[in-house]
C-alpha cells in the first residue's frame, strides 16, 4: 500500500547555509490511509515544524528543507513547486491548528471562511453553492442552527465552536490527510473531549489518514494507533501506540511517561526528567537526550545512535536497545541515579 504521507530523512534548517540551525534532523515516519498517527514531543522537539515544513507552511527564508523527501501519495512535495503544493494543501490535506481563537480571520463571516476553502480549489462552483456546502459542513461538525451561524463572525463563538469551524474548513474538500496540531491544547477539558470526538467522526466520514500532534500522551493514547516520539528535532521511538506506551524501549519515552501526572498515579510515582530540552543553539553532541538520560554512557555523547528497526513494528534511536524474541529491551550496565 502506498502511504498517504511518507517523510524520509527530513531535515529542516533555519538561517544561512553554514550557520544554520536544525529544527528537524533526519526525521522519518509515514502514515497509511485511514490510520491515525500520534506525534508526541515537548516544545522544541520539531513535531509541528516537520509537518509545517513538509506542506510548505513555514516562511522560507529563513526555513528550508535541506535534506530528505516528503511523499504525499507517492509525489515528493519537497521538490514540487509552491503552486502545486498549494493545490494539494487544503484540498487533499486539511489542517487543524492549536489556537482556535486566533486561527480564524476576525473580519470574515465563518460561512465565508469555510466556503473559501471550497472556492479556492474549485473555480467553477461559485460562492453561492460553496456557502450552501459550508452550512452542511457546519452541521456535520455538530454546530446547531448552521444557517444562521454561518453569517456570524469568529468572535461570537466559544473556543470549542471555533475549533469546530476550523475542522469544517479542514474537511471541506474531503482530504486524504488530516493534520491536527495540538487541536485541543487551548481548550477546556470538557470541550477537549467533544472536539476529539468531532475529529474522530470527521476522520471516519472522510476516511482520511490523520496525524495528531500533541504534547499530551493521554490525548495520543485515546486517538492514535501508531505513535512517533520526537525529541530535539529527531525521532526517538516509533511503533504501535499501545505497545510503546505499555512497554517503552527508549529511555526518553519511558521518562516522558513517568513524569506526566495522570489520574492513576500518585505524587511519588512522578519522576521528573532533570534539566530541560536543549535549544537549537546548544544542541548536545551525540544523542540529543544524553545529558538528561539516566542510562547515559560515554558513547552517547560522541555518537548519534542510528534510528533502526527493533522487531517487526518498532523503531528506536538508542545505542542500548537490543532486539529480543519478545520485541526489544534496554540493555545498559547501570543507571546513573539508581
Amino acid at each position: 500500500m502506498v502511504p498517504t504521507l511518507s517523510i524520509k530523512d527530513l531535515t529542516v534548517s533555519f538561517g544561512k547555509p553554514g550557520r544554520e540551525l536544525l529544527a528537524v534532523n533526519g526525521v522519518t515516519y509515514d502514515v497509511q490511509p485511514g490510520e491515525t498517527l500520534g506525534v508526541v514531543g515537548e516544545s522544541g522537539s520539531g513535531k509541528s515544524v516537520t509537518l509545517l515544513a513538509a506542506l510548505g507552511l513555514l516562511p522560507s527564508p529563513p526555513a528550508r528543507i535541506s535534506r530528505g523527501s516528503v511523499e504525499f501519495q507517492g509525489r515528493d512535495l519537497a521538490r514540487m513547486d509552491a503552486k502545486k503544493v498549494r493545490q494539494i494543501r487544503g484540498k487533499d490535506v486539511g489542517f487543524i491548528f492549536q489556537e482556535p481563537l486566533t486561527s480564524l480571520n476576525p473580519v470574515m463571516t465563518i460561512g465565508d471562511q469555510i466556503a473559501e476553502a471550497i472556492v479556492v480549489h474549485d473555480q467553477n462552483i461559485g460562492w453561492q453553492k460553496a456557502r450552501a456546502r459550508a452550512v452542511e459542513l457546519m452541521s456535520l461538525v455538530g454546530m446547531p442552527d448552521p444557517e444562521r451561524l454561518a453569517k456570524q463572525y469568529p468572535h461570537e463563538f466559544s473556543g470549542g465552536m471555533r475549533q469546530r469551524i476550523v475542522i469544517a474548513i479542514a474537511i471541506a474538500n474531503n482530504p486524504k490527510l488530516l493534520i491536527a496540531d495540538e487541536p485541543t491544547t487551548a481548550l477546556d477539558v470538557t470541550v477537549q473531549a467533544q472536539i476529539l470526538d468531532v475529529i474522530r467522526e470527521a476522520q471516519e466520514k472522510t476516511g482520511a489518514a490523520t496525524i495528531l500532534v500533541s504534547h499530551d500522551l493521554g490525548v495520543i493514547a485515546q486517538m492514535a494507533s501508531k505513535i512517533v516520539v520526537m525529541y530535539a528535532g529527531r525521532v526517538m521511538e516509533a511503533g504501535d501506540a499501545e505497545d510503546v506506551l505499555e512497554n517503552p524501549l527508549h529511555p526518553y519515552t519511558a521518562a516522558l511517561i513517568e513524569c506526566a501526572p495522570t489520574m492513576e498515579s500518585e505524587l511519588k510515582d512522578i519522576h521528573p526528567i532533570p534539566g530541560q530540552s536543549p535549544s537549537l543553539m546548544e544542541m548536545p553532541s551525540g544523542c540529543p537526550f544524553h545529558p538528561r538520560c539516566r542510562y547515559r554512557q560515554d558513547v552517547c555523547a560522541s555518537r548519534v545512535p542510528a534510528y533502526r528497526a527493533i522487531g517487526s513494528d518498532r523503531h528506536v534511536a538508542c545505542h542500548f536497545v537490543e532486539e529480543t524474541a519478545e520485541g526489544g529491551r534496554l540493555v545498559v550496565p547501570a543507571a546513573i541515579d539508581a
Partner: peptide
C-alpha cells in the same frame, strides 16, 4: 464526574 472522566487516560486497557 464529567471533569474526571474527560481527562484522557494514558492506558486504554486499564
Amino acid at each position: 464526574q464529567a471533569l474526571i472522566s474527560a481527562v484522557p487516560k494514558m492506558h486504554k486497557r486499564k
